[in-house]
């Protein structure tokens, strides 16, 4: 039907925000649709072309037995599979269940919990299938999404670096809010990509892009204690949208054990 590369967008447990990011590329949407055939994107189109697909963007985490089977089928139909967003790359906010009793959560929300089929954990896509690239963020950045699509089409590695948010604050000219104002901030251990928005708005980074490469979370925890934060509050800071990402999980677990340093 077409010789353009085909794009498919898949949703697992998520808020839809990362796939919405594609529709939010108002200035670039026409160019994207000229460069690729949107073969399957239920949120945007009822027309679905059969796979295989050249590029699959996968949003969301695996939280049900049905989704655990479906991600295998998605992988089989996808030449390149990119996991997009904190849910797909770390399990998302719903991975807080990994630290809780799921049966108790079911009973909190549903009158008849036995009717609900769910797994005890929320896990990232890479725990289930081979993922070719993970794009971080809650939500992902438009610029980085367009870079990943462009790179995949060009057959090169996406230009997305695992450095910290601190570098983006410097690039943006935002004075360090921890140094200047004593505002607790996860920026030193969080991967860049958002553009360091929070510090520019006077609040601390809350880690929505997940841990940077080899973060020194122990040093940051000491700093946060020095700012007067309680252990439980520091633990909550690590346990949000990327709570189950290994480096953040370990930092949170250490706080939970009451260990210091």
């Amino acid at each position: 039907m077409t010789d353009k590369p085909t794009l498919a967008v898949w949703k697992f447990a998520s808020c839809d925000g990362c796939q919405l990011t594609l529709l939010d590329c108002e200035d670039e949407l026409r160019a994207v649709t000229e460069a690729v055939t949107i073969a399957s994107f239920p949120e945007a189109s009822r027309a679905v072309l059969d796979g295989p697909y050249d590029l699959s963007l996968v949003e969301g985490s695996i939280t049900t037995p049905a989704d655990r089977a479906r991600i295998q089928a998605v992988r089989q139909q996808s030449r390149t599979l990119v996991a997009i967003g904190a849910c797909a790359t770390a399990g998302g906010i719903q991975a807080l269940r990994n630290f809780a009793d799921v049966q108790a959560l079911l009973e909190t929300v549903y009158a008849r919990p036995e009717d609900i089929s769910t797994l005890a954990t929320s896990t990232p896509i890479a725990d289930h299938v081979t993922v070719d690239f993970e794009l971080r963020g809650c939500p992902i950045s438009k610029t980085q999404l367009l870079e990943v699509i462009t790179a995949v089409l060009a057959g090169r590695k996406p230009n997305v670096w695992p450095s910290s948010v601190c570098l983006e604050c410097k690039a943006r000219g935002t004075p360090c809010i921890m140094v200047a104002h004593g505002t607790p901030c996860l920026g030193p251990v969080t991967q860049a990509g958002c553009g360091a928005i929070c510090p520019a708005y006077g609040r601390g980074c809350y880690g929505c892009y997940g841990p940077m490469e080899t973060p020194n979370t122990a040093a940051l925890v000491d700093w946060l204690r020095g700012l007067g934060m309680a252990e439980a509050a520091i633990q909550r800071l690590f346990r949000t949208y990327n709570a189950a990402a290994p480096d953040f999980r370990q930092a949170g677990d250490r706080l939970g054990e009451g260990r210091h340093g």
Binding site: A100, V102, L106
Partner: peptide, 17 residues
Amino acid sequence: EPPRFFEGLLRGRAFTE
């Protein structure tokens, strides 16, 4: 849509979160 249990996960979180 898979359940995500927000109402359960919010218990124990700070009101500011």
